[in-house]
Structure formats: C-alpha cells, structure tokens
Design a protein around this nucleic acid. Sequence first.
DNA 1: ATTTATTTTAACCATTTGGTTAAAAAAATT
DNA 2: AATTTTTTTAACCAAATGGTTAAAATAAAT
Lengths: 204, 204
Amino acid sequence: MAKKKLDQTTEEKILAAARKVFIRDGMAGARMQDIADEAGMNKALLHYYFRNKEKLFETIFKEATIDFLPRMNAIFESDIPLFEKIEIFCREYIAQISKNPFIPLFLLSEMNKKPERFLNKMWGGQKIEVSKFAEQIQREVKKGTIKPIHPLHLIMNLFGMCVFPFIGKTMIHFMTGISQAQFDEMMEQRKSIIPAFIIDAIKK
Amino acid sequence: MAKKKLDQTTEEKILAAARKVFIRDGMAGARMQDIADEAGMNKALLHYYFRNKEKLFETIFKEATIDFLPRMNAIFESDIPLFEKIEIFCREYIAQISKNPFIPLFLLSEMNKKPERFLNKMWGGQKIEVSKFAEQIQREVKKGTIKPIHPLHLIMNLFGMCVFPFIGKTMIHFMTGISQAQFDEMMEQRKSIIPAFIIDAIKK
DNA sequence: ATTTATTTTAACCATTTGGTTAAAAAAATT
DNA sequence: AATTTTTTTAACCAAATGGTTAAAATAAAT
C-alpha cells in the first residue's frame, strides 16, 4: 500500500545519469560519485534506490538490450522474402541504434569482459536467434536464387556493415574529419546502401 | 654506463603480463597487482620499470597499434589495382589481427573512452590514411569500372566485414555455439570470401 | 675481495571508492 | 495538528588501489 510514483523524477534521474556514465566509462571506469553528480544528488540516494553498483549496472545493461533483442528476432524469424528481410533489418537496426549510438561498443565490450554476467544472469536464456534466418539463406542457395555462401558469413557481413560505423565512430571521425551531421546522413544512407550492396553481391 | 639487456626477462615479462591484463580488463579495470601476479613478481617492480599505470598502459596501447598502422597504410597507398588491393588488405588485416584477436575491441573501446589520449599523445600525428584509397575508388567509379558508391561507404563495408567477427566474437560464440577452431577456420575463409563479396557487389 | 651499481622485495602511505548509518526534511495518513 | 512513512542528506567507514621508500639481494666493475 502507498507507493506509486505519480511524477517520474528521482529514480528516472538516476537511471539517466547511470546510463550516461556507464556507457561512457564502462562498469569498471564508472564512479558512483560521478553518477550522483550527473544526477544532481547525493551518492547515498543511488544505494537507496539500487542496492549497489552491480545492481545499477545490471539495470542499465538489461535496459540496453532486453527490448532490442525481441525486435531483431521478430525480423529474423518472420516470413518475409530474403532480400526484403535484409532491407528491413538494416533499416530497423540502424534506426534503433542511431538513438543510442554507443550501445553496441558498450555492450560488446562489457560482454567481452564478463561473458558470464549476461550469459547466465542477464538475459534469461534470451538471445539473438539467427537459426531461422540461416535456414532461409541456405534454402535460397539451394534454390539457386543467390550465389553459394555460408549463412554465417552472410550474417557476419550484414552485422559488420551495420554495426561497424557505430563502433568505429571515434576512429572514423579521426580518420576522415567527418562531422556529426555528415555521419548521421551517412547512416541514413546506409539503411538502403547496405541492402543494395548485399543483394548485388549475392544475387545471381 | 652499463645497462644493456643481455637476456630479455623482467621488462619483457611485465609487458607480456600487462598486455594480457589490459586487453582483458581495459585501462580502468586493470589492477597493477593483477599484472604483478601475472608476471610473477612484486608490484613495485612495475613502478620501477614503468613510472606508473598510465605509462605502462601507453606502452601497451602504442605497441598494439604503432607497427600495425604503417603496414595498413602501405597497402592503402600502394599502386595496386583496386580489386587486388581489396584482396591484399583483407588477407593481411585478418592475418594480422588473428594473432591478437582482442586488439580491435580493446582499441576502439579505449579510444572511445579517452579520444585525446592517442589523438594528441599516442600516435604522433600518425593515423590510418585512407584518402589515397578513397581517390582510387572515386576514379574507378568515374571510369565506370565499378558501380557508383561513396568511397567512405565502401571503406566502412570493408572494415566492418573484416573487423566485426573479432569484435563480436563473444556474442557470435554465444549465438551460434561455434567452436574456437570453427571460428578460426571461418576467418581463414573470410580472407577470400570478403573480397569476392565486395567485388561481386561493386563490379559492373 | 671490495666497492659500486642494478634489480627485487616487503612494508607502508595517501587517496579513492563502494557502501553504511543515523538523522533531517518532506509527504502522506490519521 | 500530530504521527507515521518515505525521501534525501551529511558524515563516516572499511577495503582496495596506485604509488613510495628504504633496505636487501644480486650482478658488475675495480
């Protein structure tokens, strides 16, 4: 009885601050004090709302993935023709990640450091399910509609082209001197350029 | 004077240990004690040979890039025909990275956290120089030997396909249940699959 | 062999960091 | 208005961590 948030302030503020600091500095580099400062409040508040750093991190980590996975799986498992599916995936993936461009690097980096963290605890058995998609590719190969290619190679190519610009963002800015606006425009273009590229590569 | 290393022990041991720990845990997550333990020696030794953590980190960070950059630039700046150049790059890049598969994620992650670190101090103005390569692509487009494509998009595609498997390794293992040996074999295949894929995609 | 320079160690130190506590302030309930 | 519950804070604590120091062990030079 009695404890419904009417407005959405403190807890939300903490999460927003934690999100920012964790994604910027990683679990190891993030300081509780920094998160408190960023949220404009006392450090003890963080411990009051989330028991400890680990718990707070888990919340952010989950949040960054959990509602992203089903969305991608829905695409992969759907009954759409291959070429169209590739188009939809690129468009959706890039649109989604563009909202939080640093998520992939954060995720893969943390994942790499403590694979168990999410392998056991984080995602309750959930994961990106590519088997249906792989089968679809294999079927098309057998039908002879596309050139022979190992499904996993095609999937790696697809993922690689979509995600690399986000992961390599800093390096790209450094190498090319491209502006943020130009980067955003390129990513907008890539929604259609990548599928076109792939289809040109595999269609017979 | 008198101080030439005849054998190559302590300093080498420190570097090997630091390399391992830094690449695994990142700058923020790495503990000097862990490095000392890994090297089988006292913590003060690390400070004797390298003044502090930052200095030790810089050494590892440089080491992980400095002799890699010129090698890649040499390829990009060389006078080889486009398709052949793409083949050579993929083969060399994958071969090189396969020796230290965790370097890219380590690098991009740290780069992302403190861009100034290497932007100013680390690489003395050095960087991957893709402008020559970009011009070459543009020339081929104008000549009409390949389909129209913005050079940077093609470069992103190239990099993405080459580097993604290494960066996403943990996630790939998790998603597909592939073994280490299988992964290595796939990367071996990708040395020729990626160039073939790209050439199929852009050739007229 | 003695002295000198180099390498390695154990014991400490100062700061940072995650986390606690007890009390004040603010809301909600009576 | 009084009381109870929830939210927020300041002050503090213990452990961890980067770093220092002075002395011991080892190797080099005389």
